[in-house]
């Protein structure tokens, strides 16, 4: 009769309190990170909002704070992210499809697997050095948008592959089996069933990794992105600058007001990021609705 109370001594109250403390602790830590973001945004907005106008968006670097703008950086970043997307998406998705659908579990594939995961952890500056040696010097592309975009594509590729693999993996096995059962080839299965079903996840992964790419300064500096530029890029072989470089440059200026300009630059960067993330959410929601299960 006393068996249960022997095994569970009478401390239910204490255990409940512990559980409560744990729950409160977790929620405090969660809110802490949100609060940090809020503080950051508050400070940046307070310093930068006064400078944020059309003139700022539509002007080049200037020694005069009232005439300085972020046009070259903004367009440079848009060019860069487009080139990165064009290169990284097909290669990354193709690699993920191969590894998940065609690769099997051979020793070579496991070797590929481990290396891709490792690449995702390599610091971005190392990709910058690789880009400098490979694209800028060896391929003779110079410090061009193309070299910068290719470097960023290398940087995001592992993340695109991993995110795409996860999305493909999440497609239920039954979908594939059903396709095979009515005589579809593996290619048809992938093309008409697996990829459409995995698309929302893949796109989310792509946009998040591209968002990371536009915030990178280190590899762009190494590849030779300029800081002060007085023209808008017209093609992939043009010299360029990017938003993070402009922001960094203004923070090092002796004049206090340029540091407020840096805050305005950060706001522009945040807006671009927010737009990209919002479009990721939108695309995911829309694609999920049309999913058959």
């Amino acid at each position: 009769m006393t068996r249960w109370s022997d095994r569970f001594p009478d401390n239910l109250r204490a255990r409940r309190i512990k559980a409560r403390i744990f729950r409160i602790g977790c929620s405090v830590l969660t809110w802490l990170s949100v609060a940090l973001l809020a503080v950051l945004i508050y400070h940046v907005t307070r310093a930068g909002i006064g400078w944020l106008d059309w003139q700022f968006l539509n002007s080049f670097w200037s020694r005069r704070v009232t005439e300085a703008g972020i046009k070259a950086g903004l367009l440079g970043t848009l060019w860069l992210v487009s080139i990165t997307a064009v290169l990284a998406i097909p290669i990354g998705v193709a690699a993920a499809v191969y590894l998940e659908e065609f690769g099997g579990r051979s020793r070579v594939n496991r070797f590929l697997d481990i290396n891709i995961s490792n690449l995702a952890g390599v610091p971005s500056i190392v990709y910058g050095l690789l880009g400098l040696a490979l694209f800028v010097r060896w391929c003779q592309l110079g410090s061009s948008l193309l070299a910068g975009g290719m470097t960023l594509a290398l940087l995001v590729l592992p993340v695109v592959i991993i995110a795409s693999r996860e999305a493909i993996l999440a497609v239920p096995k039954s979908i594939r089996l059903a396709a095979f059962a009515i005589g579809a080839t593996r290619w048809q299965t992938v093309r008409y069933h697996v990829l459409p079903a995995a698309a929302p996840g893949i796109m989310t992964g792509i946009i998040l990794s591209l968002s990371r790419a536009i915030g990178e300064a280190a590899p762009i500096i190494i590849v030779g992105g300029a800081t002060m530029i007085f023209f808008t890029p017209e093609g992939p072989m043009d010299e360029f600058t990017a938003l993070p470089l402009q922001i960094y440059n203004w923070t090092t200026d002796p004049k206090q007001q340029f540091q407020e300009l840096a805050a305005a630059g950060i706001l522009v960067l945040l807006c671009v990021l927010l737009l990209m993330n919002a479009s990721a959410v939108y695309i995911r929601n829309r694609a999920q609705k049309s999913r058959p299960w």
């Binding site: 410090s143 300029a226 800081t227 002060m228 530029i229 007085f230 043009d238 600058t241 440059n249």
Partner: peptide, 9 residues
């Protein structure tokens, strides 16, 4: 306007 000047640091 036709000269493209890039200053890097």
């Amino acid at each position: 306007r036709d000269v493209k000047i890039a200053v890097a640091i």
